[in-house]
């Protein structure tokens, strides 16, 4: 805070900028800050993968199959985390894999969030028939265990990275629809919406300009948590052979490739899973911090 701020009299003092207030609450949560740091690092690694990775992800070093990590006997400085069964550098593949995980998360969340907002607002604003049809449909999706539904969608569309992303988006859609509808219904009974309505605002304006911005905080939290679930489920699909196909360096797919070497070469199994765990954990930590900072009900005043 500058001297000017502290010298200001109460009459002229303005409330802190929302972003500053947000950062104040967010930074109180140490775990959330740690999560944010990991996420930022991941984004940098993913963007600069071509520069950072010591080897190309698909380059096979035929004379260096299943080389252990550098600190173990037989390790080579050329391959810091060792190589896999076809002599590809683990570290480089992991670095390139971060691109897939972040892309999967972003696309799934964007798809589920935008469709979820549209359906949720429609369910809140339109006739009861629309609302019941949408909500019952979401109930149906929720009654099938997430991974099973994703598998079924992939069975229809065929295995592959893009289809896996569509499948996971379908699975997480109901969470966003329910959340949007619930917060929109809560907002709609408030005076400012009535005021906006009587002053002649059209339906679209009411939906997207008056109500939606006030529904965003829980949606942002859910989007962050949905991001981690999307990464996890897409990796699970990859592991089952229904997601990204080899030789794509997607972490789940790498794990599936590594399974047969499980008792011979621990590193080919350990590192891809660790990468998934760290990514998912970081987003979950960040989601918890966002909830603290954005949810007014839990905010400690």
């Amino acid at each position: 805070m500058s001297a000017e701020d502290t010298a200001a009299t109460p009459e002229t003092a303005r409330p802190p900028h929302p972003l500053r207030e947000f950062w104040f609450y967010f930074s109180e949560n140490k775990g959330a800050v740690a999560g944010l740091i990991v996420v930022v690092t991941l984004v940098i690694v993913a963007l600069g993968a071509d520069v950072i990775a010591p080897h190309p992800p698909h380059e096979q070093y035929r004379d260096a199959l299943l080389v252990p990590p550098v600190w173990q006997e037989g390790g080579q400085w050329k391959f810091l985390l060792g190589t896999d069964a076809t002599g590809r550098d683990m570290l480089s593949r992991l670095i390139h894999g971060s691109r897939f995980s972040l892309m999967i998360g972003s696309i799934v969340v964007t798809l589920a969030l935008s469709l979820g907002i549209a359906l949720g607002l429609a369910a809140a604003f339109f006739h009861i028939v629309v609302s019941s049809v949408v909500m019952r449909l979401m109930d149906v999706i929720l009654s099938v265990p997430s991974l099973l539904l994703a598998l079924v969608v992939v069975a229809i569309l065929g295995p592959g990275l893009i289809n896996a992303m569509i499948a996971v988006s379908v699975v997480y859609l109901p969470h966003f629809v329910r959340l949007t509808r619930a917060s929109a219904m809560a907002e709609m009974s408030k005076d400012y919406v009535t005021a906006s309505r009587v002053s002649g605002a059209g339906l679209l304006r009411l939906m997207f300009v008056s109500v939606l911005p006030n529904c965003m905080p829980p949606l942002i939290v859910q989007a962050t948590l949905g991001f981690s679930s999307a990464v996890l489920d897409a990796a699970a699909l990859g592991f089952l052979g229904m997601g990204a196909q080899p030789p794509t360096p997607e972490w789940g797919t790498m794990l599936a490739d590594a399974r047969e070497f499980i008792l011979r070469a621990w590193w080919v199994v350990t590192f891809p899973g660790l990468a998934i765990l760290i990514t998912v954990l970081a987003f979950n930590l960040m989601g918890d911090g966002l909830r603290d900072a954005l949810d007014p009900k839990l905010k400690r005043s």
């Binding site: 775990g31 990796a235 621990w266 199994v269 765990l277």
Partner: peptide, 20 residues
């Protein structure tokens, strides 16, 4: 929180490596 974020297919493989 770590358990909640766990990719269980990997967790299973780790336990197999260690216990089996």
């Amino acid at each position: 929180l770590t358990g909640y974020s766990m990719p269980i297919f990997w967790w299973g493989l780790l336990l197999i490596i260690f216990f089996s």
